[in-house]
């Protein structure tokens, strides 16, 4: 299987960091010379994925863009496993930002 073919098979798949944390999806792929060089993740890539509805979703979701070099992919099964933790790539920031708010409510860590 060529790298490009493989790349198309992982489009829209779940990203998992090295601890198994769900930290986004493969929103798009960076392709150079018919080869996938990076995974692109974040609402900033939605407008280029689809027309009006993607632009609307991107407008709501914000402009965050994360580029993960292909070498960071450790394993591919039904999800894409990355070699490092989510914050090292700048992934999962939304969850990290909401967490302190919820932790103020008693029982959030039960």
């Amino acid at each position: 299987m060529t790298k490009l073919h493989l790349g198309h098979n992982i489009l829209d798949h779940q990203l998992l960091d090295k601890d198994g944390r769900r930290c986004g999806n493969v929103d798009d792929l960076a392709v150079e010379d018919a080869e996938v060089v990076a995974i692109l993740s974040g609402p900033g890539y939605w407008p280029q994925r689809s027309g009006r509805i993607g632009r609307l979703a991107g407008w709501i979701g914000g402009s965050r863009r994360v580029r993960i070099p292909w070498d960071e992919v450790a394993k591919i099964d039904s999800a894409v496993h990355l070699r490092r933790t989510a914050p090292e790539y700048g992934l999962g920031k939304g969850d990290d930002r909401v967490r302190p708010l919820l932790e103020r409510i008693p029982g959030a860590d039960r």
Binding site: Q14, L15, N25, S41, G92, R99
Partner: peptide, 12 residues
């Protein structure tokens, strides 16, 4: 959206 989810985790 690929977020963390599930009630097997606590809300935080």
């Amino acid at each position: 959206l690929g977020w963390e989810w599930g009630r097997y985790r606590n809300p935080a």
